[in-house]
């Protein structure tokens, strides 16, 4: 700090700034969002390689090896193509949860959460930045997996705009869910607990590899209680126009899911649950 004195004499270095904080703290949100995204892009290869390779293997095994021996799901739609929306959703669910939960758990783990808690920001701004960054990563991942799918199977998208919107909405919803898990978790083991115990079974039973009407009749009713079924059905509609009558339900389920999660996050920040004290 040899130059501290001379520097201070030359100009006011740390004089308090005059300020007025706006209603929406855009600079703060951008700083948090950018910080998360820079980390993602710094490890872009690792972030994308694993899900892309996993999905490619699904296409090879289920799309080509098994799918080639199966009859078309509906006329003109091969099983391999049918898998594409479900596999994208599968990656979106797991990666959204992982990215968002890790994003908020890491500052808790390192202690840097103190800075977030003492910053002039609302919980909603924190959510927008952290969940927004996690959702952005998932959307990028989803699009990369879609591009990968073109190498293995023919893919058509009947409603591309709706497909992207649905992708973004589901990414945001599951990122929000992951964000809550990240706040709740008190160890790395707990960070994986909910995804492994709840999300993976719901996803595997959610119609990634089949349509619900392929299930025995008794199971079809039970499957309707699984929200993942509706999310995958809605996304699949955007691709192939299948099960169009379920789109409203899919959107409704997603919006209700987001609403409930936002309420939980608001409660967590208001009470400081596993954040403060």
């Amino acid at each position: 700090m040899a130059d501290a004195t001379t520097a201070a004499q030359s100009a006011p270095a740390h004089a308090p700034a005059q300020r007025r904080v706006p209603t929406f703290n855009g600079y703060s949100v951008w700083a948090m969002y950018r910080f998360q995204m820079v980390r993602f892009f710094r490890t872009l290869g690792e972030s994308l390689a694993t899900p892309v390779i996993t999905t490619a293997l699904y296409f090879v095994v289920f799309g080509s090896a098994i799918g080639s021996r199966m009859p078309p799901v509906v006329e003109g739609l091969q099983y391999g193509s049918f898998l594409v929306p479900g596999l994208i959703m599968l990656s979106i669910f797991t990666n959204s949860i992982f990215n968002a939960s890790f994003g908020i758990y890491f500052p808790k783990f390192t202690g840097t959460i103190y800075e977030l808690l003492s910053a002039p920001i609302s919980y909603l701004e924190i959510v927008i930045a952290f969940v927004g960054a996690a959702a952005t990563k998932s959307v990028i991942l989803g699009l990369v997996i879609l591009a990968t799918a073109y190498f293995f199977v023919p893919v058509k998208i009947l409603h591309p705009v709706e497909m992207v919107l649905f992708l973004a909405l589901v990414s945001f919803a599951f990122s929000l869910f992951g964000f809550i898990i990240g706040i709740w978790a008190q160890s790395f083991e707990q960070l994986n607990f909910i995804p492994m115990l709840v999300v993976t079974p719901l996803t595997m039973l959610g119609g990634v590899f089949y349509t619900i009407d392929m299930l025995p009749e008794a199971w079809q009713g039970i499957a309707q209680l699984n929200p993942v079924v509706h999310l995958i059905a809605g996304f699949r509609w955007a691709f192939f126009g299948l099960q169009g009558d379920n789109v409203a339900i899919s959107l409704g389920v997603t919006v209700v899911f987001v609403g409930v999660l936002l309420a939980v996050v608001a409660w967590m920040f208001k009470t400081g649950y596993r954040l403060k004290n």
């Binding site: 300020r19 703290n25 600079y27 703060s28 700083a31 910080f35 800075e115 910053a119 002039p120 920001i121």
Partner: peptide, 10 residues
């Protein structure tokens, strides 16, 4: 830089 932005400064 992050801390500056986080506290709402341009």
């Amino acid at each position: 830089s992050y801390s500056r932005g986080l506290f709402g400064m341009p």
